[in-house]
Design a protein around this nucleic acid. Structure first.
Lengths: 129, 129
DNA sequence: CGGTATCCTCGCCGATACTG
DNA sequence: CAGTATCGGCGAGGATACCG
């Protein structure tokens, strides 16, 4: 059983949710997958700041939590697709809630660089969801 | 400017929200404060697993983000009260969303000890919100 | 009562290299 | 293409002690 950063100690059900979506890149991964099924390389290119290693790890955790489905086709060259599971769909409103607050109120906080939406920041494109 | 765990790198507005409520004890603190103004000692007793040090740090961060208000009365003995700011009220729906998902779907995840609501677990009382 | 100050641990995450 | 393997840093969070 994987240790969870926000597990029992934080006590609340909030911790359960955060342990599922709270990884560094998980929200971004989920947003991309909510837009549709993706291959590993597509995700990697969509989130260039995440190394392959960490991307793999976070995908494995999301899979273990049942929110995404990993489908590996035994071919050469290999092909693996990830997509949101039926269960994972239930996270949609939660993520939208988090994202909505950040967009609406994040600007009111000191020291937070709000999305300039600079066209060159390709890694932010997922925010379009 | 305090470094934010989920800052620019995660790219999305989700990261902004998580940087505000993502601390280990912040959800719990906020739930307690949503129930009404509290003194430091009340919070400390309500969240016995958090040391005074970490409690102070997280309260300071929440204050810096403007979601709570700290009011110190210059007396002997000292008296400090914390309460949700008007701005902080806007986090209510987000927290409820997170908590709702955890309560509803958290049980479907392997390795997550869902709230037994054992009566002796006094630290979980905030979940009643 | 409501904090600081100090030191320490632990695991998330990054960089780089290698493989079926 | 889609990963593992290995090494290492860094920072959040904890233990403990002391202070105005």
């Amino acid at each position: 059983m994987r240790p969870r950063r926000f597990d029992a100690k934080s006590g609340c059900a909030v911790g359960v949710t955060l342990s599922v979506i709270g990884g560094m890149w998980k929200p971004l991964i989920l947003f991309h997958l909510f837009a549709g099924k993706k291959r590993f390389m597509e995700l990697s290119r969509a989130i260039p700041n995440a190394t392959q290693r960490i991307l793999t790890l976070q995908l494995r955790e999301l899979e273990a939590d049942g929110v995404i489905v990993r489908r590996a086709y035994p071919q050469i060259p290999p092909k693996v697709e990830y997509e949101i599971s039926a269960f994972g769909q239930s996270l949609g409103p939660v993520l939208l809630s988090l994202r909505g607050w950040g967009k609406q109120y994040g600007g009111s906080i000191e020291g937070v660089s709000q999305p300039h939406h600079a066209p060159e920041d390709r890694q932010l494109n997922a925010c379009a969801l």
